[in-house]
Design a protein around this nucleic acid. Structure first.
Lengths: 337, 337
DNA sequence: AGTCCCTGTCGAAGCGCTTCGACAACCTAT
DNA sequence: ATAGGTTGTCGAAGCGCTTCGACAGGGACT
């Protein structure tokens, strides 16, 4: 393993000079710089991460805490994770992957050991148990998701309340008066995941404002669960003509079931999905949808974090505005029969 | 930040003693140990990762290189990543997330800087450009996937050849004589991803042995692509009654299309999928499938790697035996009309 | 009583890097 | 010609930990 000292010797300069060439924190003559760079290349030198971290108390690592459960939005999570890793690299950071398993302990461990300089938390619950510790430390952090109390925190998220409102608006505008919401699995609501509740709030509020009737039903993904849920909904409100689907894995089953019952999309019923664009265009009907901008969220989170690490930027909540893309799954409500 | 020295002082022992309590590398009297542990708890001490890495030349970090592209098996990748992270933690390792973006350079960077003690590579191509370097270094590594030449490497993968064979066998046993294979997207074959080619090989070989006719067509995921592909297949071989689907995102579209054409599953046509169990049971028909054991692969990879790091274990190829689970999507071939 | 061997503890030497103060060497402005 | 600034380089201290050799004290032997 090549060390700084060896490079210095090879280039005929002192170790500190090499260090300054690397960091650029002091001016170095062009000749010397070139000579050092040459030696680095020839010897194939890579600075030792541990020594660096020890001497500078900076690890150049960002910890990313992803949820352990895979009961929702797996592709979204993955996409965010990749976006975070990619964005972090462009700023010279590597990403440490933590699963939610250890919970608050992981946060303490990583902070305490100086393993990472900062962290990004995903799947934040409204009253997340990791938050008190995060507020109490000066380790920079960014949440992807929105807890109930955001004071002293930086958060990045899609504006799910606006997303809900947007979906209702779109359907209402098309004349739908009875809208059913296929929500996330009950477990998601039970642990008070912010985005699910906010979406619902947005849906309800706007529905009320527009005088539209709304029926919300949580639903596990999959065909069978969707079949049961749909039957109940149509039983309770046969006049339903608009659907908003939040649970990605319920989308395709819903479409199949509706078709099977002889309800044409979008002639008889309209469906709006909240899902990644890729899902929306790959479905059996090109879905009118509000996209979940995973990439953008990941990138934003890293940028906020790097800003904090550089002493720029402060606590703030970044809500990304939802955009509704009209495709082939929504249309005017059928004339009342 | 609490240091070893502070703990030592608080406990009234020397720093080395605290270190030995932590590592257990020398015997320590029960009294002293308890006193030290008490101090550690009281002061909330966490060993500094950088210092540790520097002094011991071990980072206790495993690098995990995941593919950047998201054109296939996203949930599988995610599940593996989570399994790796979880398994690594139980062995005292953390996981560094690398995207394939940097390619071989990332391997060199991480190895050279001592950032990680070992690495796990996913999405290995048959003739992967990262392999030469991996062979040339003494950094332990495990591949998830199987390259063409496995000499000097440790690999973990599902036995995709056997998987292919198993699918054909099952259909042949049920009397199907004409089988169509819905493969991965063309791009996957173009970059010579091992698993896709091996599966195909397994399918073809067994088909020949059993005297069954096989038609293989790559297919992008999604509804429209599947529709085109299916039309071509049925045009070319109208007598097709068995399908093997490898591309996860083609499964549901295929089912929908078949139904739409009035072909009943499993009365008229049988479908075998190669996909995670979760997908198989959530589909609109409970699918007969060979599961991709993501968790198991991740766990295995970590265990092999830890064995190497402990000086146990050597290069070897672990092929997980496929298991075909019969569900509701396959049945006897219809009598020839 | 003396020898030998454990067991438990300590001190000190690094690990490879960053960073601070020092200081030649040179340039510019008096 | 001299004082005052720059600029480029160096030496040394130290980051917090691991680990090696040393050694005191106490049993178990001869």
């Amino acid at each position: 393993m090549v060390t700084l000292a060896e490079v210095a010797q090879h280039a005929g300069v002192s170790a500190s000079t090499v260090s300054y060439v690397l960091s650029g924190k002091r001016s170095i003559s062009t000749t010397t710089r070139h000579r050092v760079e040459q030696s680095i290349r020839e010897l194939g030198y890579h600075p030792n991460a541990g020594a660096r971290a020890l001497a500078s108390s900076k690890s150049n690592i960002i910890a990313l805490m992803i949820p352990l459960r895979t009961d929702m939005y797996v592709p979204v999570m993955m996409e965010i994770a990749i976006a975070v890793a990619t964005a972090a690299r462009t700023h010279g950071y590597d990403v440490l992957l933590l699963t939610g398993e250890e919970g608050p302990d992981a946060v303490r461990r990583v902070t305490g050991s100086g393993l990472a300089d900062a962290m990004i938390l995903m799947d934040v619950e409204l009253d997340d148990e990791r938050l008190p510790f995060l507020r109490g430390t000066d380790q920079p952090s960014v949440l992807i998701g929105l807890p109930a109390d955001t004071s002293g925190l930086t958060c990045v998220d899609l504006d799910f309340r606006a997303t809900g409102a947007l979906c209702v608006e779109h359907l209402a505008m098309l004349g739908h008066r009875d809208i059913a919401v296929i929500g996330e699995a009950p477990a998601v609501y039970e642990r008070h995941t912010g985005f699910a509740e906010r979406t619902l709030d947005g849906l309800r509020t706007r529905a009320q404002e527009l005088g539209v009737r709304l029926l919300h039903r949580p639903c596990e993904g999959g065909y069978d669960a969707m079949a049961v849920t749909l039957a109940r909904i149509l039983d309770e409100r046969p006049s339903t003509t608009g659907f908003v689907v939040q649970n990605e894995s319920a989308v395709e089953p819903l479409l199949a079931l509706l078709r099977q019952q002889g309800r044409a999309i979008p002639e008889d019923v309209s469906v709006v999905a909240i899902c990644p664009d890729q899902v929306a265009v790959q479905a059996s009907v090109r879905l009118t949808s509000v996209a979940i901008p995973a990439q953008e969220m990941g990138r934003h989170a890293v940028e906020r974090l790097v800003a904090k690490l550089d002493g720029r930027g402060s606590d703030e909540v970044v809500l990304i505005s939802p955009e509704l893309m009209v495709r082939a799954s929504t249309g005017p409500a059928p004339a009342a029969s």
